[in-house]
Amino acid sequence: MIKGLGVTTVWTFDQQRTKAFFTEKLGFEARDDISMGDMRWVTVAVKDQPDLEFALMSLDGPGLDPDSAEALKKLVAKGVLGAGAFRTDDCRGDYETFRARGVEFLQEPKERPYGVEAIFRDDNGNWFSLTERSEELDFSKDFG
């Protein structure tokens, strides 16, 4: 039986640079950095979330045929891939902190029906939502 999501992929042009982005700019912790022949397995994670890691997968690594790798590189470079939504209890505060660390934001914090949201890009072009949920939000009532 599936118990939950343990690892998700973030595509990167440079694993070391992306590892530094997540650890130095977002405050994640490095988990794995293992060389396995022609592949390097690099993961990072939110410090207080032991059950989910982000695998920083090289766009030049094994597992992709040349045509697929080239197509994926174009999509990542274009900035059209959304890689996820991070929960926060202070969207505006994190926005200011991350912006001061050089994180590129596509959208400053804005009120949404579900809370406050800002949108940023990682060092490759993948975009993420930074979301502070409204405490009074009831999905079954508000969106059901």
Score class of each variant (00 low, 15 high):
residue 45 A to R: 15
residue 133 R to H: 11
residue 92 R to S: 14
residue 37 G to R: 02
residue 92 R to K: 13
residue 142 D to L: 06
residue 142 D to Y: 05
residue 129 S to M: 13
residue 32 D to A: 15
residue 144 G to D: 06
residue 24 E to T: 13
residue 56 L to W: 08
residue 23 T to I: 11
residue 49 Q to L: 14
residue 65 D to Y: 02
residue 86 F to W: 14
residue 108 E to A: 15
residue 11 W to P: 07
residue 39 M to A: 10
residue 78 K to H: 09
residue 133 R to T: 11
residue 117 E to P: 02
residue 129 S to A: 12
residue 111 E to Y: 00
residue 64 L to H: 03
residue 67 D to W: 02
residue 34 I to F: 14
residue 63 G to S: 08
residue 79 G to N: 04
residue 141 K to I: 06
residue 1 M to Q: 11
residue 126 N to V: 07
residue 23 T to F: 08
residue 121 R to M: 04
residue 9 T to V: 15
residue 12 T to R: 02
residue 80 V to P: 04
residue 34 I to W: 07
residue 119 I to P: 10
residue 84 G to S: 10
residue 127 W to N: 11
residue 93 G to V: 11
residue 29 E to I: 15
residue 85 A to C: 13
residue 81 L to Q: 04
residue 53 E to A: 15
residue 67 D to I: 05
residue 122 D to P: 09
residue 97 T to F: 03
residue 59 L to C: 05
residue 44 V to N: 09
residue 121 R to D: 01
residue 29 E to G: 09
residue 5 L to E: 05
residue 138 D to S: 07
residue 137 L to K: 00
residue 108 E to C: 03
residue 39 M to R: 04
residue 16 Q to Y: 07
residue 140 S to A: 15
residue 71 A to V: 07
residue 7 V to K: 07
residue 92 R to Q: 13
residue 95 Y to N: 03
residue 20 A to P: 00
residue 1 M to R: 14
residue 54 F to D: 13
residue 60 D to I: 00
residue 48 D to R: 11
